[in-house]
Design a protein around this nucleic acid. Structure first.
Length: 268
DNA sequence: ACACTGACCTGCGAGC
DNA sequence: TGCTCGCAGGTCAGTG
């Protein structure tokens, strides 16, 4: 499932592949993907050119001539660039015809993803109560301290809270906490100043490494597959059985409505 | 204000 | 073999 590093990779790949392309026709095949009226969406997107590509948290942002298109891939959303002759499968919900003869196709098995048209100059700094970007200087140890003040929520839930920091999902939350030697179920009320520093540093280090790896993986894809949000990461705890550090058994616990993987020996 | 739960979806694997 | 059931996950509305 795409988290910040995957979304970043998708944005950069699409920028290279369809930057400057103009949409000549749009067909929405499953209306609920579109926030607002799907027919109006088709009409408004027609004739628009992909000008700039941005990301905010897990949201993809396409700056067009007269509007901004925001897209969230949720769990399984993927963009493909294919010729019109390629088979349209049952999970391809939005088809954009491009002026270079190709089609941009939005594929989403679970139909969870969403697309929305917003104003051309929409400011995303305060979009949907999203917290700071992990690489922004606003995400620092004293911010972590101020945010967690008065809260007793588990650290896992804190990292998944998009208003705390934008872009972290279930996989990276587990990986960040493993790197910090902190258990996912531990209350955010009783961590130290050192822990706050670790959370910031490890979040940035792990996401940076993942973006680098994501880029590498995407480049190895054949062009016919287009762009996907999928990428193989070398997880130390998530979905693992044995801890890479101590060789002990990895435990799975349901925390904050998510399955959370951790090493009871290395994380306290 | 905070914390937790269920709904949205479909595919897949486990268990019977 | 074929069925049912639970799980996976990001976000948001709803509830306590």
């Amino acid at each position: 499932m795409p988290e910040l590093p995957e979304v970043e990779t998708v944005v950069r790949t699409l920028e290279k592949q369809i930057g400057g392309c103009t949409i000549t026709h749009v067909h929405v095949r499953y209306d609920p993907i579109i926030v607002g009226d799907a027919r109006e969406f088709e009409e408004q997107m027609c004739g628009q050119t992909f000008r700039r590509f941005e990301r905010r948290g897990k949201y993809l942002i396409f700056r067009m001539d007269d509007l901004t298109l925001v897209s969230h891939l949720r769990m399984e959303g993927k963009y493909y660039i294919q010729p019109p002759s390629a088979e349209i499968t049952k999970h391809m919900h939005v088809i954009f015809d491009l002026n270079n003869g190709m089609q941009l196709r939005y594929n989403d098995t679970r139909k969870f993803g969403r697309m929305e048209i917003l104003a051309k100059d929409k400011d995303f700094r305060h979009y949907k109560d999203l917290g700071p970007e992990p690489f922004d200087k606003a995400f620092n140890p004293s911010y972590v301290h101020a945010f967690r003040k008065g809260k007793r929520t588990p650290l896992k839930s804190l990292l998944l809270d998009q208003s705390f920091v934008a872009g972290i999902g279930n996989i990276y939350a587990d990986e960040i906490l493993a790197a910090c030697h902190l258990r996912p179920g531990r209350s955010c009320a009783n961590i130290t100043k050192k822990d706050e520093e670790h959370i910031v540093n490890e979040t940035q280090r792990i996401l940076k490494a993942a973006i680098k790896a994501g880029g590498t993986t995407i480049r190895s894809y054949t062009s016919s597959l287009g762009v996907t949000g999928r990428f193989q990461t070398s997880c130390t705890v998530h979905m693992q059985k044995i801890c890479a550090r101590c060789g002990g058994e990895i435990k799975v616990k349901y925390i904050g409505g998510r399955s959370s993987y951790y090493c009871p020996h290395c994380q306290h």
